[in-house]
Protein backbone atom coordinates (compact mmCIF):
# COMPACT_ATOMS: atom_id res chain seq x y z
CA UNK A 1 0.00 0.00 0.00
CA UNK A 2 1.18 3.49 -0.71
CA UNK A 3 1.92 5.84 2.10
CA UNK A 4 0.50 9.34 1.90
CA UNK A 5 -3.01 8.08 1.27
CA UNK A 6 -4.26 8.84 4.78
CA UNK A 7 -2.44 6.04 6.63
CA UNK A 8 -3.52 2.80 4.99
CA UNK A 9 -3.98 0.10 7.58
CA UNK A 10 -1.41 -2.60 6.91
CA UNK A 11 -0.45 -5.54 9.08
CA UNK A 12 2.77 -3.85 10.07
CA UNK A 13 0.89 -0.93 11.65
CA UNK A 14 -1.08 -3.35 13.84
CA UNK A 15 2.04 -5.32 14.66
CA UNK A 16 3.92 -2.14 15.50
CA UNK A 17 1.20 -1.05 17.92
CA UNK A 18 1.32 -4.44 19.60
CA UNK A 19 5.09 -4.50 19.92
CA UNK A 20 5.58 -0.81 20.57
CA UNK A 21 8.90 -0.73 18.72
CA UNK A 22 8.13 2.29 16.50
CA UNK A 23 9.80 0.81 13.44
CA UNK A 24 8.79 1.85 9.92
CA UNK A 25 6.67 -0.66 7.96
CA UNK A 26 9.31 -1.63 5.42
CA UNK A 27 11.48 -3.09 8.18
CA UNK A 28 8.70 -5.50 9.18
CA UNK A 29 8.11 -6.59 5.61
CA UNK A 30 11.81 -7.13 5.09
CA UNK A 31 11.83 -9.34 8.19
CA UNK A 32 8.83 -11.19 6.78
CA UNK A 33 10.74 -11.84 3.56
CA UNK A 34 13.71 -13.06 5.59
CA UNK A 35 11.51 -15.36 7.65
CA UNK A 36 9.97 -16.84 4.50
CA UNK A 37 13.36 -17.45 2.91
CA UNK A 38 14.96 -18.87 6.05
CA UNK A 39 12.02 -21.20 6.56
CA UNK A 40 12.24 -22.40 2.96
CA UNK A 41 15.96 -22.90 3.37
CA UNK A 42 15.66 -24.93 6.56
CA UNK A 43 12.80 -27.05 5.24
CA UNK A 44 14.72 -27.80 2.05
CA UNK A 45 17.99 -28.52 3.81
CA UNK A 46 16.34 -31.11 5.98
CA UNK A 47 15.04 -33.22 3.13
CA UNK A 48 17.20 -32.83 0.05
CA UNK A 49 16.47 -35.57 -2.46
CA UNK A 50 18.20 -36.84 -5.53
CA UNK A 51 14.96 -36.65 -7.47
CA UNK A 52 13.60 -33.24 -6.58
CA UNK A 53 9.93 -32.64 -6.08
CA UNK A 54 7.76 -29.66 -5.26
CA UNK A 55 9.62 -26.86 -3.54
CA UNK A 56 13.05 -28.28 -4.23
CA UNK A 57 12.21 -28.51 -7.91
CA UNK A 58 11.17 -24.86 -8.02
CA UNK A 59 14.33 -23.67 -6.29
CA UNK A 60 16.53 -25.88 -8.43
CA UNK A 61 14.97 -24.50 -11.60
CA UNK A 62 15.44 -20.89 -10.54
CA UNK A 63 18.90 -21.21 -9.00
CA UNK A 64 20.21 -23.58 -11.67
CA UNK A 65 18.94 -21.35 -14.45
CA UNK A 66 20.48 -18.27 -12.90
CA UNK A 67 23.79 -20.03 -12.33
CA UNK A 68 23.97 -21.07 -15.98
CA UNK A 69 23.15 -17.51 -16.98
CA UNK A 70 25.89 -16.10 -14.73
CA UNK A 71 28.50 -18.60 -15.86
CA UNK A 72 27.58 -17.92 -19.48
CA UNK A 73 28.14 -14.20 -18.97
CA UNK A 74 31.04 -13.96 -16.53
CA UNK A 75 32.76 -17.28 -17.10
CA UNK A 76 33.86 -19.87 -14.55
CA UNK A 77 34.80 -17.11 -12.09
CA UNK A 78 31.12 -16.37 -11.89
CA UNK A 79 30.57 -19.37 -9.62
CA UNK A 80 32.53 -17.61 -6.88
CA UNK A 81 30.26 -14.56 -6.84
CA UNK A 82 27.06 -16.40 -7.68
CA UNK A 83 25.80 -16.86 -4.07
CA UNK A 84 25.68 -13.10 -3.60
CA UNK A 85 23.90 -12.54 -6.92
CA UNK A 86 21.35 -15.26 -6.36
CA UNK A 87 20.63 -14.14 -2.80
CA UNK A 88 20.00 -10.62 -4.12
CA UNK A 89 17.60 -11.87 -6.78
CA UNK A 90 15.54 -14.12 -4.56
CA UNK A 91 15.46 -11.66 -1.68
CA UNK A 92 14.26 -8.80 -3.88
CA UNK A 93 11.79 -11.08 -5.63
CA UNK A 94 10.20 -12.17 -2.36
CA UNK A 95 10.08 -8.61 -1.05
CA UNK A 96 8.44 -7.46 -4.28
CA UNK A 97 5.84 -10.21 -4.22
CA UNK A 98 4.94 -9.47 -0.60
CA UNK A 99 3.63 -6.13 -1.88
CA UNK A 100 0.96 -7.99 -3.85
CA UNK A 101 -0.62 -9.54 -0.76
CA UNK A 102 -3.56 -7.40 0.36
CA UNK A 103 -2.69 -5.53 3.53
CA UNK A 104 1.02 -5.88 2.95
CA UNK A 105 3.53 -3.46 1.49
CA UNK A 106 6.63 -4.21 -0.55
CA UNK A 107 9.78 -3.48 1.43
CA UNK A 108 11.38 -2.37 -1.83
CA UNK A 109 8.76 0.38 -2.14
CA UNK A 110 10.88 2.33 0.35
CA UNK A 111 14.01 4.04 -0.86
CA UNK A 112 16.03 3.06 2.23
CA UNK A 113 15.85 -0.69 1.59
CA UNK A 114 16.98 -0.23 -1.99
CA UNK A 115 19.75 2.16 -1.06
CA UNK A 116 21.10 -0.33 1.46
CA UNK A 117 21.13 -3.10 -1.15
CA UNK A 118 22.62 -0.91 -3.86
CA UNK A 119 25.41 0.26 -1.56
CA UNK A 120 26.24 -3.30 -0.60
CA UNK A 121 26.42 -4.14 -4.31
CA UNK A 122 28.74 -1.16 -4.85
CA UNK A 123 31.03 -2.17 -1.97
CA UNK A 124 30.98 -5.82 -3.01
CA UNK A 125 32.01 -5.42 -6.62
CA UNK A 126 34.77 -3.00 -5.70
CA UNK A 127 35.96 -5.41 -3.02
CA UNK A 128 35.99 -8.27 -5.55
CA UNK A 129 37.93 -6.09 -7.99
CA UNK A 130 40.50 -5.03 -5.41
CA UNK A 131 40.85 -8.59 -4.16
CA UNK A 132 41.55 -9.86 -7.65
CA UNK A 133 43.70 -7.08 -9.10
CA UNK A 134 45.24 -5.51 -6.00
CA UNK A 135 46.46 -1.99 -6.66
CA UNK A 136 46.13 -2.61 -10.41
CA UNK A 137 42.37 -2.27 -10.01
CA UNK A 138 42.88 1.45 -10.60
CA UNK A 139 43.58 0.62 -14.25
CA UNK A 140 39.87 -0.08 -14.59
CA UNK A 141 39.35 3.63 -13.95
CA UNK A 142 42.00 5.03 -16.27
CA UNK A 143 40.90 4.11 -19.76
CA UNK A 144 43.06 2.87 -22.61
CA UNK A 145 45.11 6.01 -23.35
CA UNK A 146 47.63 7.13 -20.76
CA UNK A 147 47.52 10.91 -21.35
CA UNK A 148 43.75 10.91 -20.99
CA UNK A 149 44.00 9.10 -17.65
CA UNK A 150 43.25 12.08 -15.34
CA UNK A 151 40.09 12.91 -17.28
CA UNK A 152 39.02 9.30 -17.45
CA UNK A 153 39.57 8.95 -13.71
CA UNK A 154 36.96 11.65 -13.07
CA UNK A 155 34.56 10.28 -15.68
CA UNK A 156 34.82 6.75 -14.32
CA UNK A 157 34.32 7.99 -10.76
CA UNK A 158 31.12 9.75 -11.79
CA UNK A 159 30.04 6.66 -13.70
CA UNK A 160 30.72 4.33 -10.78
CA UNK A 161 28.98 6.61 -8.29
CA UNK A 162 25.97 6.76 -10.61
CA UNK A 163 25.56 2.98 -10.43
CA UNK A 164 24.22 2.59 -6.88
CA UNK A 165 22.01 5.64 -7.37
CA UNK A 166 20.46 4.31 -10.55
CA UNK A 167 19.98 0.85 -9.01
CA UNK A 168 18.21 2.40 -6.04
CA UNK A 169 15.98 4.76 -7.98
CA UNK A 170 14.96 2.26 -10.65
CA UNK A 171 13.81 -0.37 -8.19
CA UNK A 172 12.20 2.17 -5.88
CA UNK A 173 10.36 4.00 -8.64
CA UNK A 174 8.96 0.91 -10.26
CA UNK A 175 7.82 -0.89 -7.14
CA UNK A 176 6.44 2.20 -5.42
CA UNK A 177 4.60 3.15 -8.58
CA UNK A 178 3.02 -0.28 -8.80
CA UNK A 179 1.93 -0.15 -5.16
CA UNK A 180 0.33 3.26 -5.69
CA UNK A 181 -1.47 2.09 -8.81
CA UNK A 182 -2.83 -0.91 -6.91
CA UNK A 183 -4.22 1.28 -4.14
CA UNK A 184 -5.72 3.79 -6.57
CA UNK A 185 -7.39 1.07 -8.62
CA UNK A 186 -8.70 -0.52 -5.47
CA UNK A 187 -10.32 2.79 -4.55
CA UNK A 188 -11.83 3.17 -8.02
CA UNK A 189 -13.14 -0.37 -8.43
CA UNK A 190 -12.56 -2.68 -5.47
CA UNK A 191 -11.23 -6.17 -6.29
CA UNK A 192 -12.47 -6.12 -9.89
CA UNK A 193 -10.15 -3.29 -10.91
CA UNK A 194 -7.08 -4.67 -9.19
CA UNK A 195 -7.27 -8.27 -10.38
CA UNK A 196 -6.10 -7.71 -13.97
CA UNK A 197 -3.30 -5.49 -12.72
CA UNK A 198 -1.95 -8.39 -10.67
CA UNK A 199 -0.84 -10.20 -13.81
CA UNK A 200 0.96 -7.12 -15.09
CA UNK A 201 2.60 -6.46 -11.75
CA UNK A 202 3.78 -10.02 -11.20
CA UNK A 203 5.57 -9.58 -14.52
CA UNK A 204 6.82 -6.11 -13.58
CA UNK A 205 8.09 -7.12 -10.17
CA UNK A 206 9.91 -10.16 -11.51
CA UNK A 207 11.54 -8.06 -14.20
CA UNK A 208 12.65 -5.45 -11.67
CA UNK A 209 14.24 -8.08 -9.45
CA UNK A 210 15.90 -9.57 -12.51
CA UNK A 211 17.21 -6.18 -13.66
CA UNK A 212 18.81 -5.60 -10.26
CA UNK A 213 20.38 -9.05 -10.46
CA UNK A 214 21.57 -8.56 -14.03
CA UNK A 215 23.11 -5.16 -13.40
CA UNK A 216 24.94 -6.49 -10.37
CA UNK A 217 26.23 -9.26 -12.58
CA UNK A 218 27.41 -6.79 -15.23
CA UNK A 219 29.22 -4.68 -12.62
CA UNK A 220 30.89 -7.77 -11.17
CA UNK A 221 31.90 -8.82 -14.66
CA UNK A 222 33.44 -5.39 -15.20
CA UNK A 223 35.50 -5.62 -12.04
CA UNK A 224 36.57 -9.23 -12.70
CA UNK A 225 37.64 -8.93 -16.32
CA UNK A 226 40.90 -7.42 -17.46
CA UNK A 227 41.06 -3.65 -17.81
CA UNK A 228 40.97 -2.74 -21.50
Amino acid sequence: MAAGLAHPLTYSVILDQQLGLHLPPHVYYMWLAMIILFTCGFILRGRLQLVPGGLQNLFETVIGGLEDFVVLNIGEEGRKVFPFLCAMFIFILVMNYIGLIPGCDAATANVNTNAAMAISVFVYYNYIGIKKWGFGYIKHFMGPVIFLAPLMLILETVSHLARPLSLTLRLFGNIRGEEIVLVLLFILAPVLGTLPMYFLFILGKTIQAFIFFMLTMIYLKGSLEHAH
Binding site: T61, V62, G64, G65, L66, D68, F69, V158, S159, L161, A162, L165, S166, L169, R170, T206, I207, F210, I211, M214, L215
Partner: peptide
Protein backbone atom coordinates in the same frame (compact mmCIF):
# COMPACT_ATOMS: atom_id res chain seq x y z
CA UNK B 1 10.29 -16.10 -16.90
CA UNK B 2 12.26 -19.29 -17.29
CA UNK B 3 12.45 -21.15 -20.55
CA UNK B 4 14.32 -24.44 -20.54
CA UNK B 5 15.88 -23.58 -17.17
CA UNK B 6 17.20 -20.26 -18.39
CA UNK B 7 16.00 -16.70 -17.89
CA UNK B 8 13.90 -16.09 -20.98
CA UNK B 9 15.15 -13.89 -23.78
CA UNK B 10 12.34 -11.39 -23.34
CA UNK B 11 13.31 -10.75 -19.74
CA UNK B 12 16.98 -10.24 -20.57
CA UNK B 13 16.08 -7.87 -23.39
CA UNK B 14 13.66 -5.97 -21.17
CA UNK B 15 16.33 -5.67 -18.51
CA UNK B 16 18.91 -4.35 -20.91
CA UNK B 17 16.63 -1.76 -22.44
CA UNK B 18 15.30 -0.54 -19.12
CA UNK B 19 18.78 0.34 -17.86
CA UNK B 20 19.77 2.72 -20.62
CA UNK B 21 17.62 5.77 -19.93
CA UNK B 22 18.38 5.87 -16.24
CA UNK B 23 22.14 6.04 -16.70
CA UNK B 24 21.98 9.28 -18.65
CA UNK B 25 19.96 11.09 -16.01
CA UNK B 26 21.69 9.73 -12.95
CA UNK B 27 25.23 10.40 -14.20
CA UNK B 28 24.26 14.02 -14.88
CA UNK B 29 22.93 14.41 -11.36
CA UNK B 30 25.99 12.79 -9.79
Amino acid sequence: FFKRDKPSEAMVLFGNVATIGMQLVVATFI
